[in-house]
């Protein structure tokens, strides 16, 4: 990646401690538009926690998060979202009793900042419904639009999770194990969607993933976390070839490949 492109997201010595345990340990890293970075590391390495610090669910103990040059370390989750940060969760995290369509419509309503309208009818804001329909079409969930989330099988719930992120139209996308728990024939749909998102040179994608073939086909760069610390950062081939990384830090899956 040419360094001339201004970074979209940076973390500087980002750290969080839970009691005595340092879950994320002074991680400094820069992400640029047009780049998909895979974040790997064994379970408990701190990948999800690193995401939580970036998107604001957990306050940092030390260090800074910068989004497009702006320090967002102290901002609320919602404020970070409004600035263009979008996050999909490792565990499906939707509005369970609301319909698929409403789940997406709410996202677009948030993006267009219409949440504080108290005296108009949500059901008659057709532009939001149409935009939500378009997103559902893109993830091929139109036929399920009116079902509540609870009625969907796990794989489709994961798709809605990705649809939410697409509807947010962020400039920085964060995926936390998007295909976890999906069957082999379902996962490609999600991966195609991520590949589609990546095609836009203006977006930055961070992807936590275990499956090596997925990483190889999608990523431009790999960073490795271990015990909360950043231990490797580079082009996929280089990082995968590094014996130190292979032996000491990566899960079995990586070594097998």
């Amino acid at each position: 990646m040419p360094d001339t492109i201004a970074p979209s997201l940076e973390t500087h010595d980002l750290t969080v401690r839970f009691g005595g345990h340092v879950a994320v340990d002074a991680v400094s890293c820069t992400f640029r538009p047009g780049e998909l970075t895979a974040i790997v590391g064994p379970n408990g390495a701190g990948k999800t926690t690193y995401f939580n610090l970036i998107s604001g669910q957990i306050p940092a103990s030390a260090g800074r998060v910068m989004l497009e040059g702006k320090d967002i370390t102290r901002l609320s989750v919602a404020a970070r979202t409004a600035l263009g940060l979008g996050r999909a969760f490792q565990l499906t995290n939707l509005f369970p009793r609301l319909s698929v369509l409403e789940n997406i419509r709410l996202v677009i309503q948030a993006r267009t900042r219409r949440g504080f309208r108290l005296w108009s009818m949500a059901a008659s804001q057709h532009d939001l419904l149409q935009a939500a329909d378009a997103v559902l079409e893109r993830v091929r969930l139109t036929h399920l639009a009116h079902l509540p989330i609870t009625a969907l099988p796990h794989g489709d719930q994961r798709k809605v999770e990705v649809a939410v992120l697409i509807a947010m139209e962020p400039r920085v996308f964060m995926f936390d194990e998007p295909t976890a728990g999906m069957s082999i024939d379902e996962a490609p749909v999600i991966l195609d969607l991520i590949a589609g998102i990546k095609r836009d040179p203006a977006v930055t994608v961070l992807l936590v993933e275990h499956k090596m073939d997925v990483i190889r086909s999608l990523s431009d760069r790999i960073i490795v976390l271990h015990n909360g610390a950043l231990v490797a950062d580079g082009p996929p081939a280089e990082v995968m070839a590094s014996s130190v990384v292979q032996e000491a830090y990566l899960g079995k899956e990586l070594i097998d490949v």
């Binding site: 919602a78 509005f95 609301l98 409403e102 709410l106 504080f116 108009s120």
Partner: peptide, 19 residues
């Protein structure tokens, strides 16, 4: 209203509503 829908979203999952 759109506001009422947000309230329902918050009731369902405040964490995600914020996100």
């Amino acid at each position: 209203s759109p506001f009422g829908r947000v309230l329902q979203a918050i009731r369902e999952n405040a964490f995600r509503a914020e996100a």
